[in-house]
């Protein structure tokens, strides 16, 4: 039975992933900002089959509190088989363009806090000599575009950081998984397929578990985003700057 730590446990993708772990009778430690919501998710996971569920609240931007949280999680779980970092905010790009403060906050929540966490998680997994560090980045990090480049550049920082960390932890036997979801929607219109680039939190979650099981490095979800982003990265900047994307 896997011991799983999830940071940002109230996000839709994290919650669906946690359910799949619960079905596999995993033990879970959930970390989120809103206590009432994370408590509700914890009871749900217990009923869905999780062997053990504990939770705590955390403001990810309070970097100083990370170490104590990781200590408590490791103590509750015994060891860390999987750490999933799933928190993030999709801030309004326009508002960010007009506010240094908002932009810095978006970068802190989506990138710096993730790197602060990874910095402290890496030696723990390395010492264990096993485990998976899975982080939700985004296809938006593969190339900046006007509609969300603040968010995108934060995700680019995360993806690049993870690429280096993966090399570092490879010899220690630790899997570092970069998850890049594309367009995620509610299931309401699921009966009308919107094309291969759309998905639901539930299907993304299933993809995350597959990627962990198969020891993958980078997972585009749905998969069609892999070739799509490869193509988009090929477009020369001269052309790209004129595009309405």
């Amino acid at each position: 039975m896997k011991k799983v730590l999830i940071i940002g446990a109230t996000s839709a993708i994290a919650e669906e992933t946690a359910r799949l772990f619960a079905q596999r009778l995993a033990s879970l430690y959930l970390v989120a900002r809103n206590e009432r919501r994370v408590a509700a998710i914890a009871s749900d996971l217990g009923i869905r089959g999780a062997t053990q569920v504990a939770y705590e609240t955390l403001d990810v931007n309070d970097f100083a509190s990370h170490a104590a949280m990781l200590d408590r999680a490791t103590e509750a779980l015994g060891k860390l088989d999987v750490v999933l970092i799933a928190h993030g905010t999709l801030d309004n790009q326009r508002a960010c363009e007009e506010s240094v403060d908002l932009t810095m906050r978006a970068l802190s929540t989506n990138a710096l806090s993730v790197i602060a966490l990874c910095t402290q998680i890496a030696p723990r997994l390395s010492a264990q000599g096993s485990g998976t560090l899975a982080v939700i980045s985004s296809v938006a990090g593969d190339r900046g575009k006007r509609s969300n480049y603040v968010y995108g550049s934060a995700k680019a920082l995360v993806s690049t950081y993870l690429s280096g960390l993966r090399q570092r932890l490879y010899s220690a036997g630790v899997q570092v998984l970069t998850i890049k979801p594309g367009l995620v929607d509610t299931p309401m219109t699921a009966s009308f397929p919107k094309g291969p680039l759309w998905s639901t939190p539930r299907r993304v979650a299933a993809g995350i578990l597959r990627a962990i099981d198969k020891k993958r490095d980078v997972a585009y979800l749905p998969r069609a985003w892999g070739p799509a982003m490869w193509f988009i990265r090929l477009i020369p900047e001269k052309v790209f700057k004129r595009l309405e994307l």
Partner: peptide, 14 residues
């Protein structure tokens, strides 16, 4: 408007 209720899909107590 419709209020999509499928996001409220947690068990509370069994």
């Amino acid at each position: 408007a419709l209020l999509d209720m499928r996001s409220l899909d947690r068990f509370i107590q069994f």
